[in-house]
Design a protein around this nucleic acid. Sequence first.
RNA 1: GGAGAGGUGACUGAGUGGUUUAAGGUGCGCGAUUGGAAAUCGCGUGUACGUGAUGAGCGUACCGAGGGUUCGAAUCCCUCCCUCUCCGCCA
Length: 423
Amino acid sequence: MLDLRFIRANPDVVRKTIADKGEKADLDRLLSLDEEHRKLLVESDALKRERNVESEKISVLKKEGGDASREIARMREVSARIRDYDERLGAVRGELRTVELTIPNVPHETVPVGADEDENVVLREWGEPGSLASSPVPHWEIGETLGILDAKGARRIAGSGFMAFVGAGARLERGLIGFMLDTHTREHGYTEISPPFIANRAAMEGTGQLPKLEFDMYRCDEDDLFLIPTGEVPLTNVHRDEVIPGERLPVKYAAYTPCFRREAGSYGKDTRGLLRVHQFDKVEMVKLVEPETSYDELESLTANAETVLQRLGLPYRVKVLCTGDLSFSAAKCYDIDVWSAGVQQWLEVSSCSNFEDFQARRAGLKYQPEGGGKARFVHTLNGSGVAMARTVVAILENYQTDAGTIVVPEALRPYMDGLEEID
RNA sequence: GGAGAGGUGACUGAGUGGUUUAAGGUGCGCGAUUGGAAAUCGCGUGUACGUGAUGAGCGUACCGAGGGUUCGAAUCCCUCCCUCUCCGCCA
C-alpha cells in the first residue's frame, strides 16, 4: 500500500507506475474519492466539535439543576446529521480503500521499463550449462527408473500435480533443506524459524496475498485460514503490528516451509514432473531493515541465494525484472533461474525482492530509530534460498550419468550420510 | 468440545454514563542538583487522519473489532474475534 499523501502529491509518478506495471487501477477515481472524503471529514469534524462543546455545557447546566431540554433537543438534531455524515464517510472510505489496494508499488529507478518477461535483463550468468550425461533424459523419467520419484503414488494420495519422493529421493530433498538452512544460518547470519504453515486472513493481507490471490490458495473455510503459498507469509508476519527496537535491525529470518499453490488454470504448460506442483518445499529468507540500507540488503540477499547454487554446482543466471514483469508489491526484484539439461530450460528457483515500505505499511511493521524520534516503517525484503523442487530437477538432470545414475553434488554428501551416487 | 476469566497508550495499571482533553506508576527524553554518578526534584513523552506552508497551532477519531441505546459511551446492550486458566480429547 502506498501512502495516500504520496499519491496525492505525485499523481504523475503513480500514473506512470500503473502503466509501466500493466496494472488496471483507476487513479482518477482514487483522487476524486480522496477529495470527497476530505471534504466530508472537515464538515463532520466541525459538527462533532460542536457536539463535544455543547455536551459539556449540558453537563454543567444539569449539575447546577438547570433546564437543558432546549439544548438537548438541538443536539439531537446535530447528532442525526453526524450519523448521516458518518454513513456517507463510511461508504466513501470503503470505496477509497478498495481502490487504494489496487495501486501498485512504484518501481525503483534502476528497474528497466518493459512490457513483459521478454524484456527482463540478464545481469550475470554463472557456471556452464551441461550434464554429466551425453543426452540427459527428463527428471520424471530417470526419477521413475531409479524409484526415487513416485508421481503415481502421490496422485492416489492427493491427485495430479503432487509428487512423492522415495528412498534416496526423499533423502535428497531432506538433505537439501538441511544444507540450505545451515548455509544461511551459520554463514549468512539468519535466524532459523520453524513457523506455522497455515496463516490467517490478517497475515495474508499483511503480505499482500489477499485480496488478489484468494483463489490461488488452499483454504480452510471452517476456520478462515489458508495454507501458505510461500514462507514469506509467516516470516514477514512474525512482527506484524509491532514496533521493533532499532538496535534489533536488521532482522534476518530463514525458514524451511512447504508451499501450497492451487495453480488454478495453469494446466498443460510446463507441468510435467516437478516443474510445477501444488506443493513444494522451499527455504525462504526474509529481512526487515532500515530504509537507508534496503538496496544493499537486496544485493546481499541475492548473493546468499546464489551461494547455495554455486555450492551445488548448478549453472544459473540472474535477471532484473522489468516493470511489466515486476510483481504488484515489489519495487525491485531479481529472479534466479537454474539451467536444467534434461528439459533444456531455465527454471526459476528464486525471486529476491525489495518491497520498501509497501508491505510494512500494510502489515504495520515499524521500528524505533536508535537516536529517538518517531517510529518509522521498516523496509521488507524476501527471497527464496532456494526452492527445492526445481533444484531437484536440475540435480537429477545435470548430475545424471550415461550409466543412468545420479552423482550427488559434493556439498550435499555430508547431508546424505556420505552417499556419492544414487543408483 | 465443556466451564470460567480477561482484552485500556512502549510496558504496568486505575477507571461501571458527563472537568478522563485516559489517573498513578515504570520506561524514555530534556533540565535542575552533583567533582561525576546514584537517589531526588521539575518539565515533557501515543497513533491515525484532517486543517495549516512538509512549522507552530487547532480539530476529529482511537480504551480487541463491528453495530446499538443516549444530548453525551472506555463505562450500558447486542454480535463477532483473540488471549489466558481448568476439564475433556489427542501426536
